[in-house]
Simulated assay, not measured.
Amino acid sequence: MTTVVFFLMPGVHLLDLAGPAQVFSTAADFGQPYDLAYVAESPTVVSGQGLPLTADTAWPPLGPDDLVVVPGRRAPTVDAVLAAPVGDPVLAALRGHHARGGTVASVCAGADVLGRAGLLDGRRCTTHHDVQEDLARRWPRATVVRDVLFTSDDRIVTSAGIASGIDLALHLVAVRHGPAFAARVARDMVVYARRNGHEPQTSAMLRHRSHLDDVVHRVQNLLDERFAEALPLTGLARAAGVGERTLTRLFTRATGGLTPLRYQQALRLERAEHLIAHGSTVEAAARAVGFEDPRMLRRLRARAESAV
């Protein structure tokens, strides 16, 4: 059983908390062993949106496989947002969990609490765009990364603002259980497959999801989950209950010009770029995303670079 502890500060943003909590709760519904816990310095915490929340004041036992998440908070000023009233015992708990091999994450301005615990020193991090400069000034030994949704550095995972906590949590689920499982969780939450924090803040999985064609969405769901497999047009059309020519016509119209094959290639390319950015060779990344010949991946990368 993996315990996910959410530390709640006064004024906690509901979506900072609810987004990641929903991801791990949905993962548990699908059979993964997650147990969610909520800890605060007082038994009642009033959220930034005025909703009172109850929490435990004692931390549960935590091991290396467990996760602590610090959501951000709402306050009248930037200084107040970054000066959340958090005591030394909480900071010691965060440091101790990380020192024992555990993962510590933050959403939005929750990154400042990690900074006070000494966990941002020498590491990459991010936060909401409104407080990025202030966070960088407060913790000059950290590298604050702009214009990403989340960063991960030595089991310190930080995300930008509000809804990006969902991206952070889906990333952690994908790392632990694979991208296909994360895509299943995302689809159940009606966010489909989400963006990656180390890549531009748009992706094929989002750019081509703004349409209302249920047939195309069903095919995209299949491609999102099984993009590394060989998925002939015949099988996709059969799964969608339409003919091949009809599927191609509907898909191209809904996605602004992409065929199912080009959409699948875009998914493979984005995943391969993520793997390469994390130290994989082009050959290994090509195999991981389903290309039998790495030359195909090289051609797609060259085509994407020339289009920039």
Results as ranks from 00 to 15, higher is better:
L170D: 03
D134E: 15
A272I: 06
R209H: 13
V78H: 12
V23M: 06
A174Y: 04
T44V: 13
L53K: 13
V145S: 07
D154H: 12
F24L: 05
E41V: 05
V242Y: 02
D153N: 11
A92H: 10
D224P: 08
L258V: 04
H278N: 13
R298F: 01
S25D: 11
I156C: 08
C125N: 02
F24W: 06
V69A: 00
L261V: 11
A204Y: 05
V4W: 01
V157R: 05
A284S: 14
R141Y: 01
D153T: 10
V191M: 02
A237F: 00
D66R: 12
P76C: 11
H177I: 02
V69C: 05
P33G: 07
S42Q: 14
S42A: 14
V5Y: 05
V23T: 08
V78P: 05
P179N: 08
G96W: 01
V12P: 03
P20N: 03
R95F: 03
G110E: 00
G122M: 01
F181A: 03
T127A: 12
R238I: 11
F7W: 10
T255I: 03
D65H: 14
A55W: 03
L17C: 01
P76W: 11
D153S: 09
A239Y: 04
A169W: 03
V175E: 15
P10N: 02
L170M: 12
H278M: 07
E273G: 05
H274E: 14
A272R: 01
A105Q: 06
D134I: 06
V68E: 06
R268Q: 14
A240R: 08
A174V: 08
V90G: 09
S164F: 01
A183W: 03
M1N: 11
A99C: 00
T3C: 07
Q265E: 14
R74D: 15
I276H: 02
H274N: 09
G101C: 09
G87W: 01
A307N: 02
D65K: 15
V308P: 11
L172Y: 04
E270M: 02
V104L: 01
L168M: 03
A75D: 10
V308L: 13
R299H: 11
L67T: 10
D88V: 10
G48L: 04
L62S: 09
A230E: 11
L212S: 14
G161R: 01
G110I: 00
E305P: 07
A21E: 02
A117K: 13
L222K: 10
R146E: 09
M296D: 13
R268D: 04
R218H: 09
L267V: 03
A230T: 13
A37E: 14
V81E: 15
A136V: 02
V86G: 09
R209V: 06
H211Q: 08
D79F: 08
R298T: 14
Y192G: 14
W59D: 07
P20Y: 01
R95C: 03
G235E: 15
L275F: 11
R184M: 07
F150K: 06
G63H: 10
L223C: 11
A27V: 09
L51I: 12
R209M: 13
T248W: 02
S106Y: 06
G31T: 10
L120N: 01
T54G: 12
L223D: 07
L17F: 08
R245L: 14
R226L: 03
A84W: 00
V173D: 00
L62Q: 04
A230M: 02
H274L: 11
T259F: 00
A18M: 09
R73L: 14
A27E: 07
R238W: 05
P200R: 06
